[in-house]
Amino acid sequence: MNLDTLLVGLAGILTAAAPVVIATIGETITERAGIVNLSVNGSIILSAMAGFVVAVSSHSLVLGFLAGAVVGAVVALIVAFSSITLKVSQVAVGFVLTLMTRDMAYFLGDPFMSVSGPIVPALPIPGLEKIPILGTLFFNQDITVYLSFLTIILAYVYIFKTRSGLVLQGIGERPAAAFVRGANVNLMRYVYTMIGGALVGLAGPIYSLNVKAGWKGTISGLDGIGWIVLAITIFGGWNPLRAALGAYLFAFLQWLGLVIQPSLPNVPSQVLQVAPFPLMILTLLLVNIGNAEWVEQTLARLPEETRRTAARVLRAMRTSPPASLGVPFDNE
């Protein structure tokens, strides 16, 4: 493999990762506010279908992307209304929605099966694309990839460097304290859940109009991605930078699967496609195992030097959720 093919491959990873990055950061924002939106998997499929159908019917990519974001935001609104106003279990509502929106996508998208649709055009950035290596990687992409870069930076700056970002952290960590300081906790949870949902919904058309262009119903290859997004949100420790890293790692492993597939002719392609899922379990095990009781007990029995090193490694991998994640807030 020469440098050029490698570079094109890596640039392809950045393209493939764009929807995962955007959806993961969306879910990160939602969960930062203390709400779990478990509907991601179905939301992405439904918004992919909606975005594709709207783009095909209106001949407008922009409207397609807008439709995807609106679908994601509406699904998130149902999650927010059920869990914040009606205090229904967030997990239950999210789980039903993830199944229902998926079936809605298959049902409503049926007439548009295998219809040919528009594809997002490449958009090299003049001047910058000529830079060796970096140009091919970062500046000879399309608008969705630039959008994913922008989302990472904006989300990071917003959450950690602005005043309202601080309040966002507050309503997920200690909503009572944020409330006393004048934050309208439940209203903001509504807003952030919908913003997060809109970003998740944006991921749909990025698939159906770019990464996996077209709508093919149950074989669109989108089922499962949303669950990976939820897992990367945990892996990312609710930090946009680490979440993006997780998304790129995931896309890299998928690419690796495609590259090594020809050398394993006896393995059906479906098997390599699920390779991310055992890896998902493994990474969740790595980031969570430090919290398990038996691990602490085992560590305590180790000699001092080893114990310290092991504890440091575990701590570096460990992530912990916002303290009030999934807990309804009552301002009475």
Binding site: W227, A231, M280, N291
Partner: peptide
Amino acid sequence: YGGVNEIFGGLGLNFV
């Protein structure tokens, strides 16, 4: 024993 939420563990195992 691993602290992996059963939703993700179960889901991953479904795909496997």
